[in-house]
Amino acid sequence: MVVDELRNLLLGGRAGEGRESAIPSCDEISLPLPTDYIEMVAKIGSDFSIDKKLIVKGPGVIDRFFPQSQRDLEYIHKNTGFFVRGGEILPAGFSGSGAEWISFSNLVCWAEDDSGRKLFWERVGNPDGWRIVATDCVAKFARYEITATDYLYKLLRRSLFCSVFTSSRWPDPDRIQVIFHRVDSG
């Protein structure tokens, strides 16, 4: 399973840093979450950063802060969405042939870095079918029809090139460092 392979890649086979259950009860979370993400949190942990670069949010943090990420995008783009084509976010007011509209109200941020680049789920249909959207929130955009765990595993193994996150120096699959964070999501 990809979650087990991801765990081995991130933790070298050891379990997540023994904490209480990271998943609040279903009554406490207003969003449904993809099954692979829930399994990742159960097997690896939540609220962790990879190489002090990419922060994977826990369920409580996602649930509490996803509306703010949507408002941030609306503020940046002065709109409720944007048109994308060929890995680019198109200028406001331009759509053109082959452009696709992405509504910010469908995006839920589940990971980000300190440079403003974010990973979103595009909430259309069943949570287990949500697409992954990677963006720098200004100009670059990439969409993947894979699960969050597939995306992370392939990105970190460098078998997936993401124009938003992959660089010549990151990630380095031989030097992955994981740090767990204690986050108050309430």
Rank of each mutant, 00 (worst) to 15 (best):
E5C: 00
E5P: 04
N8T: 13
L10F: 02
L11V: 00
L11F: 09
G12E: 09
G12N: 12
R14A: 04
R14M: 11
G16N: 03
E17I: 15
G18W: 00
G18F: 11
G18E: 06
E20Q: 03
S21R: 14
A22F: 14
P24C: 10
L31D: 04
P32T: 03
Y37T: 04
M40H: 09
A42M: 14
A42P: 05
K43T: 09
K43Q: 02
S46L: 00
S46N: 05
D51L: 06
K52H: 13
K52Y: 12
K53E: 05
L54S: 06
L54T: 02
V56K: 07
G58L: 05
G60L: 10
I62F: 00
D63W: 09
R71C: 15
K78Q: 15
T80C: 09
G81N: 01
G81S: 11
G81Q: 13
F82W: 13
F82S: 08
E88W: 10
E88H: 08
E88K: 12
I89L: 11
I89V: 08
A92I: 12
G93F: 07
G93D: 07
F94G: 03
F94Y: 15
S95G: 10
E100K: 14
E100R: 12
I102C: 10
F104H: 10
N106F: 00
L107E: 04
W110T: 07
A111P: 08
D113S: 00
D113Q: 02
D114C: 13
L119Y: 00
L119N: 07
F120Y: 13
R123K: 06
V124Y: 02
D128Y: 07
G129Y: 15
W130S: 05
W130N: 09
I132C: 06
A134L: 06
T135A: 12
C137I: 08
V138W: 09
F141Q: 02
Y144W: 07
I146W: 11
I146T: 11
A148E: 14
D150L: 06
L152T: 06
L152F: 02
L152W: 00
L152Q: 10
Y153H: 04
K154S: 13
R157F: 11
R157K: 14
L160T: 07
F161L: 12
C162T: 04
C162Q: 00
S168V: 08
S168L: 12
W170F: 08
P171R: 01
D172Q: 12
P173S: 07
P173R: 00
P173F: 06
P173H: 05
D174W: 14
F180N: 07
H181A: 01
H181W: 03
S185A: 13
S185Y: 13
S185R: 10
